[in-house]
């Protein structure tokens, strides 16, 4: 993108205009995510910067929405005795977080194990019907979520899986599977098959070969697939809306309620925490990708 020395004046001007345009687009991408962070510390119940906040007056800032995040739904938020157990058992957001993690982790495990094994089969050259099967396994990502949720709604009402944890976990696992398949097959593309043959010729049985040779090499792909699956579940609200009960409310479901009913800066506090979570996840995936490329001897091109 460096400007060549023979550039005309017009090209020079255009070059800087272009950079400004790109800067504005980057701002469009990132500003909405960053704007919630300072606003979540607002001392007033407004969704905008107050005069005090702009003048960086400490009085304009507070942690009250984070406290509210913990206290909402508690029996006795002001009691000293039993505050922790009350919070842990009754606070609406805490319960939603627990549900999100239970459902997220269970569905991630299911999706990752099934998806990784399937990806191993799919990337073998002798796999029959590879194209159609791949298309079916990826389809949960392409089919609009409202359609999957409607189908699950009918199916679960008929089979009694509606309003149960296993029902939601299975549904979320299906939605996460395409991500696991895509990332793990992408990792296996660069996988040197002669390594497994070498292991076999040295006397390792297939299971040992898998755990000692294949698995360590594809692990970065598997983990990033698992993270994608986890985020899919952690961020999913439509299926929860359709097939879950009050008991199984997750964080996104709680946010949905918050946005639709009593919109308050508590939502912004929750959003800020989720942004922090997504930054952590992004960092992890990026580090894993680099590690995976190093291990497979691919230099970044």
């Amino acid at each position: 993108m460096a400007l060549p020395s023979h550039a005309t004046t017009f090209e020079k001007v255009w070059h800087y205009v272009f950079l400004v345009i790109c800067g504005l687009i980057f701002l469009f991408l990132i500003a909405p995510i960053l704007v919630v962070i300072p606003l979540s510390f607002n001392a007033e119940p407004y969704f905008t910067f107050t005069q005090k906040m702009l003048s960086l007056d400490p009085e304009g800032y507070s942690l009250r929405w984070y406290e509210r995040l913990l206290e909402q739904g508690m029996n006795a938020p002001n009691a000293v005795a039993g505050w922790w157990s009350d919070m842990w058992n009754n606070a609406a957001w805490v319960r939603a977080a627990k549900n999100s993690f239970i459902i997220g982790i269970a569905s991630t495990l299911l999706a990752t194990v099934l998806g990784t094994v399937a990806a191993l089969g799919l990337s073998r050259p002798e796999m029959p019907f590879k194209g159609p099967i791949m298309a079916i396994l990826i389809s949960p990502m392409i089919v609009p979520i409202i359609i999957s949720a409607t189908g699950l709604f009918f199916f679960y009402s008929a089979t009694g899986l509606a309003n149960t944890y296993p029902g939601i976990i299975m549904a979320h696992a299906v939605l996460g599977i395409p991500f696991v398949i895509i990332t793990v097959t992408a990792t296996l593309v660069g996988f040197d098959q002669s390594l497994t043959r070498a292991a076999a010729s040295l006397g390792a049985n297939p299971r040992r070969t898998f755990f000692k040779v294949t698995m360590p090499l594809i692990l970065p792909g598997v983990i990033s697939g698992a993270l994608f699956a986890f985020v899919t579940s952690f961020d999913e609200v439509v299926v929860v809306l359709f097939v879950a009960d009050f008991e199984q409310q997750t964080i996104p479901r709680q946010m949905w309620n918050g946005i639709r009913e009593q919109i308050s800066p508590t939502i912004l506090a929750a959003a800020t925490i989720l942004v922090a979570v997504s930054i952590a996840l992004l960092t992890t995936v990026e580090l894993l990708r680099r590690r995976g490329e190093r291990m497979r001897g691919i230099t970044p091109s």
């Binding site: 991408l29 990132i30 909405p32 995510i33 985020v231 952690f234 961020d235 609200v237 996104p252 946010m255 949905w256 946005i259 959003a271 989720l274 942004v275 997504s278 930054i279 996840l281 992004l282 995936v285």
Partner: peptide, 8 residues
């Protein structure tokens, strides 16, 4: 970062 941030 937007890609990884929750839709809600």
């Amino acid at each position: 970062l937007p890609f990884w941030t929750s839709l809600l």
